[in-house]
Amino acid sequence: MVAPALRLREVAKSFPAADDRQRQCLVLDAISISLDVGELVSLVGPSGCGKSTLLRLIAGLDVPDSGELMIGAEPITGPNAERGLVFQDPNLFPWLSVRRNIEVGLLARGQLREKRGEVEEFMRLVGLETFADAYPHHLSGGMAQRVALARALINHPKILLLDEPLGALDAFTRMRMQDEVLRLWQSRRTTMLLVTHDIDEAIYMSDRIIIMTQRPGTIDQIIQVPLDRPRDRSSSDFLRLRGQILELLHFAGNETSLEGRTPIR
């Protein structure tokens, strides 16, 4: 049997409480997940349930209180280029041109000289070859996020962590970018873990959806998405799944609506 791409066992994490530094506030508890190689999994849940914290733990930017995080057969000890992370804010370095931003990973790992050709390839992959010398503030939100994706993918990560990468985009750009991410995923077969607030996005894109509970964040349910790709956002199966998840989230959010949004029944 192939080892899972990512395996989390009984992961817990707490932070000092905002109002009282002496008290620890449990953010994540008993998180156990396993992602197969090449799988695209979404993580949804009410805001403040620790989705981003979980991603930071997997990226190695934070250390868990307890539990085990494994990439393949290796435990996670710190940030590493094999786990790419893309934030909601593209966080491009404003002092570098698009090309130089994409080169960052290669330069940081001392591989720029032998792999310079890949930079062109990745700029073409995200369709930005004509903007190679533009500075980030000249780019639109969608373009900037494509650069951020190329910058993460050039390291050939074993897993790509996406923290609401499309959250700041307008509805049209967002739908186009969903297809773009799917295309990248299908062409490269990178394992992806996507945090999102958008249930349609989760259903449209992922193989499985992990639904988390309100603080402390635990795993409430894991839902398989049995639809074939490309998926139709208005098909009855899609809509039924959507209703089902909204119901679950409504429950998980302790009778408060998700992000101020009233669930549709």
């Binding site: 990226a59 940030p79 590493n80 280029a81 790419g84 966080n91 002092w95 960052v104 940081a108 910058r151």
Partner: peptide, 24 residues
Amino acid sequence: SYLDVARTLGAGPRYLIFRVAIPA
């Protein structure tokens, strides 16, 4: 977040100081 991004891209301390913090 610049430092976080650079670290997930494989940057070591030298890179973080000379190519992220100082330009920023």
